[in-house]
Simulated scan of single mutants.
Amino acid sequence: MTAPSTLSNAVAPASADAARVRRVPIALEDRSYDIHIGNGLLEDAASWSGLPKARCALIVSNDTVAPLYLETVAARLRPHYAQVLSVVLPDGEAYKGWDAIERIASTLLEAAADRKTVLFALGGGVIGDMTGFAAAIYMRGVPFVQIPTTLLAQVDSSVGGKTAINHALGKNMLGAFYQPLRVLADLDTLKTLPDRELSAGLAEVIKYGPIADAAFLDWLEAHMDALRARDPAALAHAVQRSCEIKAWVVGQDERESGLRAILNFGHTFGHAIETGLGYGEWLHGEAVGCGMVMASDLSVRLGLMPAAFLDRMRTLIERAGLPVTAPAGIGVERFMALMRVDKKAEDGEIRFVLIESLGRAVMRSAPDALVAEVIRQHSA
């Protein structure tokens, strides 16, 4: 399972302003849409043109992002919609559940919003997932737009149509595949991102190297310091390259029946950390970063990769400011039990995304005893 060697040439300039706005297309069987990447997109009237006509629009955000960008987005939408509503939810993974969906639905119903209503997800991955899920189920489906304001959301969760909420027994276990109309990734929003959130986003950037593009992994090693320093050119390239890879994968396998599973490198271990600790204790990207170290170790122990690969990944993930050791409080038995309810598990057998060569990932199971060794090795 790998992206083609020509992927680096998959995106060509789409318009005269391509130097400022980079567009990455996602081509699906029934329709396509663009990921817009650039600076100043929220202020640019062109970002909001061509959306469906409707009476009502609803912006969903959280109490961290809303004070920064909600009014800017609302002002751009008012010329297009007679009624621009907003829902501001508490910030954090701990609130990614039914209560938030109920608030979104109640706001829509109280406003007598019809099925042409357009939802706008203004925030990070949690807001994007919840808004997309609400859009998927309100009146059996209304259109929505992703406006990701975190690095993690720009390079991963806003792209590809996965929407979900959490359950106490498992992360993202309740959801739907539901594609947005477009994705607006304004790189200026990364200027207000806390350092911890930036590092969390880098985890999802890093994963694209070992699963699909060895040259990108080399580039990340050479530019990690620039990325953490928020160098504009480095961030723009990282976001574009990540989106190119994800767009290609999603275009081949929209509903994760095969190839798309490679995007979950590190996530089986990572989701267990998030659920075991309680949602919000670790950021998603922090758990994925640690999970990639564990998945790299498992790749080595199964004889797929040389030992140097584990050292390389651990070093890069540490340089990104991410944890490489899981908390001891979860315990091996609990860890294993949580991974058995992972969406990739089959008949109770845990399946992992592993690396068999740089740029190529595979889905594999592993003996429980070996997995337990990995957990012990990488737990505090």
Rank of each mutant, 00 (worst) to 15 (best):
Gln146Gly: 07
Pro194Met: 10
Leu302Gln: 04
Ser379Arg: 08
Ile137Gly: 02
Gly289Pro: 08
Thr131Leu: 02
Val87Tyr: 01
Leu41Gly: 09
Gly128Pro: 01
Leu370Val: 13
Leu68Tyr: 03
Asn166Thr: 08
Gly132Leu: 08
Tyr279Val: 08
Ala212Phe: 10
Ile206Trp: 06
Ala136Arg: 01
Ala12Ile: 11
Arg255His: 14
Tyr95Val: 03
Ile245Leu: 15
Gly331Asn: 03
Asp99Gly: 11
Gly329Asp: 04
Asn166Cys: 10
Thr189Gln: 04
Val118Ala: 01
Met224Tyr: 06
Ala203Leu: 11
Gln179Gly: 10
Thr275Val: 14
Ala222Ile: 04
Ala113Gly: 07
Asp17Val: 11
Leu322Pro: 08
Gly124Gln: 06
Pro323Asn: 04
Asp63Gly: 05
Leu174Met: 13
Ser61Val: 03
Ala12Leu: 13
Val341Lys: 10
Leu68Val: 12
Ile104Arg: 02
Ala153Lys: 02
Gly40Met: 12
Asp156Cys: 06
Asp231Tyr: 07
Arg196Thr: 13
Thr117Phe: 07
Gly141Trp: 08
Leu119Val: 11
Met363Thr: 12
Arg314Asp: 06
His36Tyr: 14
Val118Cys: 08
Val142Lys: 01
Asp17Lys: 10
Leu227Asp: 05
Ser15His: 15
Ala226Arg: 14
Ile375Asp: 04
Arg360Ser: 12
Pro13Ala: 10
Gly160Asp: 08
Glu286Phe: 14
Ile165Gln: 05
Arg340Leu: 05
Ile37Gln: 00
Thr72Leu: 12
Ile37Trp: 03
Glu373Ile: 05
Asp99Met: 07
Gly285Leu: 00
Gly141Ser: 04
Gln240Lys: 15
Leu122Pro: 01
Lys96Asp: 04
Lys343Ile: 08
Met336Thr: 12
Pro367Leu: 06
Val362Cys: 10
Asp231Cys: 07
Val341Asn: 08
Ala10Met: 06
Val87Phe: 03
Ala111His: 11
Leu7Ala: 01
Ile262Arg: 02
Arg241Met: 11
Gly175Ala: 09
Gly132Phe: 12
Ser106Met: 09
Arg78His: 13
Arg301Ile: 06
Ala164Trp: 13
Val239Leu: 08
Arg115Lys: 14
Val142Phe: 05
Ala168Asn: 07
Glu221Ser: 13
Ala247Arg: 09
Val293Glu: 00
Phe133Ser: 00
Gln377Cys: 11
Val84Asn: 02
Tyr138Arg: 00
Leu68Thr: 10
Arg22Tyr: 07
Ala121Cys: 10
Val155Met: 02
Arg351Gln: 04
His378Ala: 05
Leu109Arg: 11
Gly201Asp: 06
Gly278Val: 10
Leu68Ile: 13
Ala308Asp: 15
Ala105Val: 13
Ile206Glu: 03
Leu202Val: 10
Leu358Trp: 14
Val341Ile: 15
Leu51Pro: 06
Gln83Cys: 09
Asp347Gly: 13
